[in-house]
């Protein structure tokens, strides 16, 4: 049900984008109000969310250790999976964020009959990694629309992405990968009963939304061409807070824009905040040095204890009978029995 609802929600957005530009008021809303509002919500929401995490302290030092600790000098430490220094933590976080290290642990490639067997769980890692990197590349490529003159590195990325030189406009590999990865992630959510069991509206909604964005973008680039010059002019004018009404913006572009704005505005309220949260995860971003350095809990408070004095008083006679030394006895005498 939640899958259906979220699909309907995304389709409604697509329809609103396609049809909304037919009237002047609608176009104003789509090209002016929505982008600014979405961007503001995104920035403010993102910051609030991260700051709220930041302001909750990390009372205890709880890294999950995934390798040998640093203990005796002759035992080889797993410096990345069980870091004891800042650099180790940096390496661990980098592996986590850039390569999805933990998901990869899932990934135990096996050689069987001289062939590499990749099971189901490996595809999750591959799909997730492919999706995120492709998305990043695509976002960076979009900078060509927001920056004038276009920086050389953005052009470089484009050239890299289109190095297959298929067709004109050139086919971007990232587009293909993004679509394939999204399709796989969606397929997996439907097909794997365990994942289906836990999937919520928001899980499907995010996937459908991203898929709709990707499809509309691909359509615009390869099939229903839009006038890139107008788009760029529009993007630059937005960035300069001097929006111009551009009649040449096509309905498809408006739909794409609306979907992207929805994603941006929705992000701070959703699980997509994992993009910021991963940096803060206390099981990953702490060095395993809790015995070497004292970790401070800002709200540490005194608790009720059963003190030694109370204990000795309660068991006094039994202690004496058993010959266990008491507090005020001479320490040396205690060890006689």
């Amino acid at each position: 049900m939640s899958a259906l609802y979220s699909l309907l929600a995304v389709l409604a957005l697509v329809a609103a984008g396609l049809e909304g530009g037919r009237t002047g008021a609608g176009r104003d809303a789509l090209t002016l109000i929505v982008p600014y509002a979405a961007f503001t919500i995104f920035l403010a929401g993102f910051c609030v969310r991260v700051l709220r995490w930041a302001w909750a302290p990390v009372p205890f030092h709880i890294p999950t250790t995934c390798g040998q600790q640093k203990s005796l000098p002759w035992i080889r430490q797993a410096k990345v999976d069980n870091p004891s220094s800042k650099w180790g933590v940096l390496a661990r976080m980098a592996a986590e964020i850039l390569l999805f290290r933990s998901l990869f642990r899932n990934n135990r490639a096996r050689m069987a009959e001289k062939r590499l067997i990749l099971g189901e769980s490996k595809f999750l890692w591959l799909g997730a990694l492919a999706f995120h990197w492709a998305l990043l590349l695509i976002l960076l490529r979009h900078l060509r629309l927001f920056i004038q003159p276009v920086p050389a590195w953005v052009n470089g990325l484009e050239r890299l992405d289109g190095f297959l030189q298929i067709g004109a406009p050139q086919l971007y590999i990232s587009d293909v990968i993004l679509l394939a990865a999204l399709a796989y992630l969606l397929y997996r959510r439907f097909r794997d009963p365990a994942v289906r069991y836990i999937s919520l509206f928001t899980d499907y909604f995010a996937l459908f939304l991203l898929l709709a964005i990707a499809v509309s973008g691909v359509l615009m680039r390869y099939f229903v061409r839009v006038d890139v010059l107008s788009v760029k002019q529009f993007a630059l004018s937005l960035a300069a807070f001097r929006p111009v009404d551009l009649r040449a913006l096509s309905p498809l572009f408006l739909a794409h824009l609306l979907l992207v704005c929805t994603l941006a505005a929705y992000l701070p309220f959703s699980k997509l905040m994992h993009m910021g949260g991963i940096f803060l995860s206390p099981t990953r971003n702490l060095a395993n040095d809790s015995r070497r350095k004292r970790h401070i809990n800002p709200w540490n408070y005194p608790v009720k204890k059963h003190t030694y004095a109370e204990w000795e008083e309660e068991f006094h006679d039994k202690l004496v009978a058993a010959g266990i030394p008491l507090e005020d006895e001479d320490a040396g005498k205690a060890h006689t029995d």
Partner: peptide, 16 residues
């Protein structure tokens, strides 16, 4: 507990 708030927020239900 940052762990608590964070872990409430960021799960994507990937099922790993």
């Amino acid at each position: 507990y940052r762990s608590f708030r964070l872990f409430m927020d960021i799960c994507v239900r990937c099922g790993a």
